[in-house]
Design a protein around this nucleic acid. Structure first.
Lengths: 192, 192
DNA sequence: CAATTCATTGAATTTATATTCAATATTTTA
DNA sequence: TAAAATATTGAATATAAATTCAATGAATTG
């Protein structure tokens, strides 16, 4: 890759990174193209040289997000409880070590649940329903005695909401101490 | 109160209620005055007859929020763990029975953490730091053996993030089953 | 019931923000 | 080094949303 293309790539990444940062702090609508350009230290016009529109910039972030940390979730060949332990651990590990992945995780959640995100992007995410597969896993874990009794769907909600709540908080206040993933897993773990 | 004033009060409440609903679904910036007026079924002009500005409308909601369900949190004369049990229970009770209070809880959190909320309102909320007092309570609970070991601040974060995550989810998808407050308290409870 | 006050509307205005564009500087290529 | 391509800017322009306003209808009061 020529030095110029590299430079271009680098510039785009700066924009993406500033955008990610601002989008999770303010939300899509409240983040002004102006803010992003300012944070990168470039003119607004130049930003449009790199990205066709605010929505396209956002879309590129989401696309990165889909390809990236979401792949954490692979339950093949694992005990149900083990899956939840591993997943929580992974995500909390990312939260602490790779702020990009952590922020991405938060962004995806926002895009999924916030009605203000662009419709086309919300559609892209529709397939990523985590509740259906994990509710099934919880039922299995209840059957083999490792996961506590109770409405499996409600358990899945408690688990994911807790994780996502912590991720959001950590993205917002990175200096605060990060909870341990085990504490969260205790939401669903059956007591011995 | 004359029939006219009653009518006026009622109309204002309709607006507040629609606003609350939209603000938590879309966030402050993405919620258009237009959307609110439409949801209430009135013209935009009329909305401005009742509220001076979008910001004032938002501010009034926050003021209600400060006076209202936040008062749940009173720890006087309670064992630390009991406080966390009661609080979780209360909040989850509201979530399921009083959608207004539940939404208000979510709104407050959003206003607190989202940089896009109007500055004046964020300032109003600065005093409502829940972490400092509850971290102290957690330390007490650790001392008397009812709360698990670990960084007390991190434990407080885990507890509150989980609760707030669930509240947000329930406000967004009211038909989903609500988790039990006990599951959440297990994040901080010491195993026997 | 006439006068006054309040509720309501839809259109006009203002303001904020996204997007485009023409001009200039810089880098690459031949 | 001259031509071509790309980066960059700041100033237009376009668009969307907040806010104001003049006019009309409905309720209330004396």
């Amino acid at each position: 890759m020529g030095v110029r293309e590299e430079q271009k790539e680098k510039r785009r990444n700066e924009i993406l990174s500033a955008g990610l940062d601002l989008f999770i702090r303010k939300g899509y609508a409240a983040t002004k193209i102006n803010d992003i350009a300012e944070q990168v230290g470039m003119s607004v016009g130049l930003l449009f040289h790199y990205f066709e529109s605010k929505e396209k910039l956002y879309e590129e972030l989401i696309t990165l997000g889909i390809a990236g940390p979401m792949s954490v979730m692979d339950s093949s060949g694992m005990e149900p409880l083990e899956f939840f332990e591993r997943t929580a651990e992974q995500i909390f590990y990312y939260i602490q070590t790779e702020s990009f992945s952590a922020k991405m995780f938060v962004l995806m959640n926002q895009a999924f649940y916030n009605e203000a995100a662009p419709q086309r992007i919300r559609d892209m995410l529709q397939d990523f329903d985590i509740y259906t597969p994990t509710t099934a896993l919880i039922e299995m874990g209840q059957a083999n005695g490792t996961i506590r009794e109770g409405n499996p769907y409600a358990l899945a909600i408690a688990y994911w909401c807790a994780i996502q709540g912590v991720a959001e908080q950590m993205a917002q206040t990175p200096d605060a101490p990060c909870p341990e993933s085990n504490w969260i897993v205790d939401i669903i773990r059956r007591k011995v």
